[in-house]
Design a protein around this nucleic acid. Structure first.
Length: 309
DNA sequence: CGCCTTTGACCAGCGC
DNA sequence: GCGCTGGTCAAAGGCG
């Protein structure tokens, strides 16, 4: 991998894209109708929204930076950075709910595999071979074999009394850690569906305990389980079948996204304006065939397609 | 009995 | 190299 990094948060995005457009939110729609969850798109930065979907993210990388998401480019999106950003930037005095996401080299080609770490662990526990005696030693050797790879991540900040938001999927908690500088622990969950390695972290903001920060990592490779714990059937909940990152989202966000299926008009939205003159957004002229719309269509179905026409 | 949470231990990455 | 921190494992126990 190269060491090149791109700061997508600080990148100067063209003003010809509206956050509302990307999220298919009618600008005239009052926030209160978004499911009463505090999910306010006007409070998001363009980059935040952009990165809320790896599909959007990848497409923009391609169009803006001319980079292929699957190439060797490395993006400056480590967990620490995003966590710090989420926690430190978003809470104090700002609109509480916000999304951010990051993407790095994906392991999506191996969705059913455990992480290298767990493989290593299993080898340790399993055969009891020569490696069984010194776990640390084994760890070092295994380390070189495969670098840790990260799935795309999406973070939400949601005002909620409960930590673990129902999203239609079944999760198993596999860890909990104390968070530095925070009295609230961080919980680690994994999708219980076999061969689905989607994970999520849930933590409470230490600055505003009413805010739950949920970070999803990976993409479900299956439908929403029919056996929901909640009273609402998953299919009904989501409104349509399919898989994708959208279905990793908390129900509130799904509802928010599903409630806004239509493209927006050209109204100005605070600092985020959707300009008529799309012609100057040459960066986004879709002369090249746009790659994977799977996630893209789930979240912002019309965004780039619209520009393609 | 199956599924889930809890929790201490372990490991990797990173900064100093 | 060392210490810190985030992330994960897996045994043990709880619960319906």
């Amino acid at each position: 991998m190269s060491n090149e990094t791109k700061d997508l948060y600080n990148y100067q995005y063209p003003s010809s894209f509206s956050l509302y457009e990307m999220m298919n939110v009618p600008t005239s729609t009052p926030i209160s109708s978004y499911g009463n969850n505090g999910f306010d798109p006007s409070s998001y930065s363009f980059a935040d929204c952009l990165q809320s979907s790896p599909g959007v993210y990848d497409s923009l990388l391609q169009k803006t930076f001319g980079l292929s998401p699957s190439s060797s480019e490395v993006f400056n999106s480590s967990m620490d950075q995003e966590s710090k950003r989420d926690v430190t930037n978003d809470v104090a005095g700002e609109t509480p709910t916000r999304v951010s996401a990051s993407s790095s080299s994906s392991e999506a080609d191996n969705p059913g595999e455990d992480s290298g770490k767990s493989q290593r662990k299993r080898e340790l526990v399993g055969d009891g071979g020569e490696e069984n005696q010194s776990s640390k030693k084994v760890g070092k050797t295994k380390k070189n074999e495969e670098k840790k790879k990260r799935e795309p991540r999406v973070s939400f900040m949601t005002k909620s009394e409960v930590d673990h938001l129902e999203d239609g999927y079944r999760w198993r908690k596999y860890g909990q850690k104390a968070v530095k500088n925070s009295p609230y622990p961080r919980s680690y969950y994994r999708c219980t569906t076999q061969k689905c390695n989607v994970k999520k972290r849930v933590e409470r903001s230490f600055q505003d305990p009413s805010i739950v920060i949920t970070t999803y990592e990976g993409k479900h490779n299956h439908l929403v389980p029919s056996t929901l714990r909640g009273p609402v059937a998953a299919e009904h909940l989501l409104g349509h079948r399919g898989s994708g990152l959208l279905h990793s989202f908390p129900r509130q966000h799904q509802e928010f996204l599903m409630m806004n299926p239509h493209p927006v008009n050209n109204q100005s939205v605070g600092s985020l304006s959707y300009q008529q003159s799309r012609g100057n957004s040459s960066n986004y002229s879709n002369s090249e065939p746009v790659v994977d719309y799977g996630l893209l269509q789930d979240i912002v179905p019309s965004m780039f397609l619209k520009h393609e026409s």
